[in-house]
């Protein structure tokens, strides 16, 4: 990267506090495809001059997959450890790169002693656009391109956030097309509820295939996502359908970064 990503430890040593903590998440940290998105979120933060930091190696799984799998012990162990770190750094505001981390920290941490203002990166992008700090210029043009947005369950139905990601796409002057099942009726990519980490039960189809077929019905050039797990499921679907050349699966952060030439 062309700039250094600041960590909380460094800021603290310098006696500074960030405006916002960027919670990267496990997928964003380790998954190669998601790492790109993580870097793009940093590029956006850097581009608008927002004072931010990450936890770096001090970050740890939120416990979400353990909780959805039924292991409340492991979840609360993770949560309390994380809350200790976050509170020690006096964190007030958090942006996450993953709807699962977002949901867990926002909704499930307060009851365990961790109360923060939590937003998802698509909300951050929307805020920056609204404040005039972020535009879609100086980079790749998405003008007139057909984009369909896949609602992640934990952002959409889970937390009622349907508009922010769409607002982030609207500035592109692209052609937004909705899938038949969208917003509160959106179809899951198949990864939620710890499914990401196991084989699916016996059935006649994989869920991501059902979803990708629906997405392809809109004849898109880009399928926009806002979740690293959806990203994996949708990308796998596109590969299986042999449509990698025609259709790109991109995170809203990647699209924003590209549109601004970051």
């Amino acid at each position: 990267m062309e700039f250094k990503v600041p960590t909380m430890a460094e800021l603290m040593a310098a006696g500074e506090e960030p405006e916002i903590l960027f919670w990267v998440g496990c997928a964003g940290s380790y998954d190669e495809r998601a790492q790109k998105i993580t870097r793009d979120i940093c590029k956006i933060l850097h581009h608008v001059g927002m004072k931010y930091a990450v936890l770096g190696t001090e970050e740890s799984c939120t416990g979400d997959p353990a909780k959805r799998a039924g292991n409340e012990f492991l979840f609360q162990m993770q949560a309390m450890t994380n809350i200790e770190v976050l509170n020690a750094y006096n964190i007030k505001k958090i942006v996450t790169g993953c709807p699962h981390c977002f949901n867990t920290i926002k909704n499930e941490y307060p009851g365990l002693g961790g109360t923060y203002e939590v937003i998802h990166h698509t909300q951050l992008i929307q805020d920056l656009i609204n404040d005039g700090k972020l535009k879609a210029e100086g980079g790749e043009s998405f003008k007139g391109k057909k984009i369909t947005y896949h609602d992640p369950c934990y952002l959409g139905r889970g937390n009622g956030i349907y508009e922010a990601p769409r607002k982030a796409l609207e500035v592109l002057d692209a052609q937004l097309v909705e899938m038949k099942r969208c917003k509160s009726n959106g179809l899951c990519c198949g990864a939620g509820g710890a499914q990401m980490f196991k084989e699916p039960e016996k059935g006649n189809k994989d869920i991501n295939i059902e979803r990708i077929e629906e997405a392809l019905e809109t004849n898109p050039q880009v399928i926009a996502a806002g979740c690293p797990f959806c990203m994996t499921m949708l990308s796998d679907g596109i590969k299986l359908k042999d449509k990698e050349k025609e259709v790109k699966v991109l995170d809203i952060a990647e699209i924003t970064a590209r549109a601004n030439g970051l």
């Binding site: 990267m1 990267v24 790492q35 993580t38 190696t57 970050e59 740890s60 492991l74 710890a194 980490f197």
Partner: peptide, 29 residues
């Protein structure tokens, strides 16, 4: 596979078997 995922969280602080020390390596890409 679910047990493995939980074991990874317990031992590596991530649902996959990666070293916690490598968690910040993304910044080098």
């Amino acid at each position: 596979s679910i047990n493995a995922m939980m074991g990874n969280i317990e031992n590596n602080q991530a649902p996959w078997k990666y070293s916690p020390a490598d968690r910040f390596n993304w910044a080098e890409g």
